[in-house]
């Protein structure tokens, strides 16, 4: 087995892949979220931003898209394989086991991850390709958003995803720094303020859009 193969085969190697791809995805999310907030600057500005990405720098957009695709796939495959290994590592369960310090976020990473994966597929079909959109317009991204969030089930589906995203980030950002060996030793390694702030800002920032649309704050 080659060096990369051994790395990928090891549980620590896979976690490092998850951490590294996670960092890439979080970086993207921050930019994506900031871009979305331009919705509040009006239709013209928002559609121009959309045009920038879809036409003016489309080559760059494709590089980002491919990077993200590879990241998501690696992240998800590693997560799946590790989950299977972890389950196999304890064939006989405890009659009674009481988690002592595990956060809700850490316990829901797997379910949240699956939800987010489904969400990503839907979201691309919804706003990028328009496959799942009732009235998709190539140039009218602002309108796509207003129509896209006009029904409660879809808005709630998005808000649910953001709920899972915040939990995912709360655990994932903190864990990634540890997995990548970047965290400094600390008296209380379970503390995670940076992760908390980022989780709230990113998931909160994204949620503003469907909320604003449903509450009629954006026309």
């Amino acid at each position: 087995m080659g060096r990369l193969g051994k790395f990928w085969d090891s549980s620590v190697g896979k976690k490092i892949v998850m951490g590294a791809t996670g960092v890439i995805l979080v970086g993207f999310l921050i930019i994506h979220m900031a871009g979305n907030l331009q919705l509040f600057l009006g239709a013209e500005r928002f559609n121009a931003y959309s045009k920038l990405l879809k036409h003016d720098i489309i080559e760059l957009t494709w590089i980002v898209r491919l990077t993200l695709l590879v990241s998501v796939v690696l992240h998800a495959v590693a997560a799946y394989q590790l989950t299977m290994r972890n389950k196999a590592a304890r064939p006989e369960p405890y009659a009674k086991r009481v988690p002592q310090v595990s956060t809700y976020a850490s316990q829901t990473m797997r379910y949240g991850g699956v939800y987010l994966l489904l969400f990503i597929v839907y979201h691309i079909g919804h706003f990028t390709t328009g496959t799942f959109h009732p009235a998709f317009s190539e140039s009218g991204t602002f309108g796509n958003v207003l129509i896209g969030f006009s029904t409660w089930p879809i808005a709630l589906f998005y808000l649910g995803a953001m709920g899972f995203l915040s939990l995912h980030l709360y655990h994932g950002i903190w864990a990634a720094f540890r997995t990548l060996g970047l965290a400094r030793p600390s008296g209380d390694p379970l503390k995670r303020q940076i992760a908390l702030v980022l989780a709230i800002v990113v998931a909160g920032g994204f949620s503003l859009v469907p909320l604003a649309v449903k509450l009629g704050l954006v026309h």
Binding site: K6, S11, L82, R85, N86, A89, R90, S102, S106, M109
Partner: peptide, 17 residues
């Protein structure tokens, strides 16, 4: 780390337990 995997232990998810 390699031996740890060979023995069939699970991976670290940083639960902190």
């Amino acid at each position: 780390v390699t031996q740890m995997d060979i023995e069939g232990f699970g991976g670290c998810t940083l639960f902190g337990e």
